[in-house]
Amino acid sequence: MKKMKDQEQIDQYLQAYQIKSIFNEQLLPYLELYSFEQGELICSQGDPAQYLYVLVKGKIKIYTTSPEGNTLILSFKTPLEVIGDVEYVRGIDFINTVEAVSTVVTIGIHYRWLKNYGKDYSPLLQFMLDIITNKFTIKSTSLSFNLMYPVEVRLASYLLSVSFDESDSLCNDQLSISIKDAANLIGTSYRHLNRIIAQFCKEDLVERNNGFILVKDREGLSAIAGHNIYE
């Protein structure tokens, strides 16, 4: 993680996403830019929450982990998204893990400044209310899809989500993923996932080689996914 105090760049992001009005004049001086490299964790489930992050560039992956160590993917997000909003409102530790899928840039502000200068500022409160209610609607839908849709659909969606990101030209269609981790993330067994990958290879949708999975037919995967259930 890199922290940058670049007010000009912050202003550009605020203007681009039309969110400058949600921060009052007292909060603006405390906004900072945070960048994360691909694969870096922005926050970890159970860690103390201290910052509110507004995602302004890149793609993130959100997942939860059970006490037994099993993980389940909840969603992938691109701008505009907020990390730490539920935790701020409820005063709790981070409830999920958030990982950078591509290079990520966020605007961050410490909770203490929000509590000092933003707790009664209605534009900010309305913004967070909109984000939180939308987030829980999507989470409910995502969990339902994990229960209702077959592994073929979930894997196709997962591959589409992690292999391409319009906001970052460095992303490409070649992935280096752990099959075991992928199985946990989409909620299936390692053996079953291997069968589906072999099926996808046979249908020339993907190519598996030396631990890499190459997406060969995005349209074919999109047809299987129907719509991208993790986004």
Rank of each mutant, 00 (worst) to 15 (best):
D120W: 01
D130L: 06
S157F: 01
L72Y: 06
G91F: 02
D6Q: 05
D120T: 04
V86E: 04
S35F: 01
E25P: 01
T64E: 06
L129Q: 06
L28C: 11
G118H: 05
V206N: 10
T103Q: 13
M148C: 09
S222P: 00
P48G: 01
I62D: 06
K139D: 06
I132D: 09
L28R: 15
A16Y: 06
R112F: 04
C201M: 15
S35N: 10
G39L: 05
E219A: 12
R112L: 09
V101F: 03
G84C: 04
L221V: 03
D85L: 03
I95T: 14
D85S: 10
E40I: 03
K2I: 11
A225S: 15
N24Y: 07
I22D: 08
Y230N: 09
K119W: 07
L143H: 02
S189Y: 07
V82M: 07
N116I: 00
F36A: 06
F76M: 10
S176K: 14
Q174W: 03
I42K: 02
S144A: 14
Y13P: 09
Q26K: 15
Y30Q: 10
A198D: 13
K115P: 01
F127K: 03
L52R: 02
M128C: 07
I132M: 14
V104R: 12
V86L: 11
A49W: 08
D165V: 09
I138G: 06
L114F: 02
L160R: 12
Y149C: 08
I62T: 14
L214H: 14
G84P: 07
Y17G: 06
R112Y: 04
K59C: 12
S157V: 02
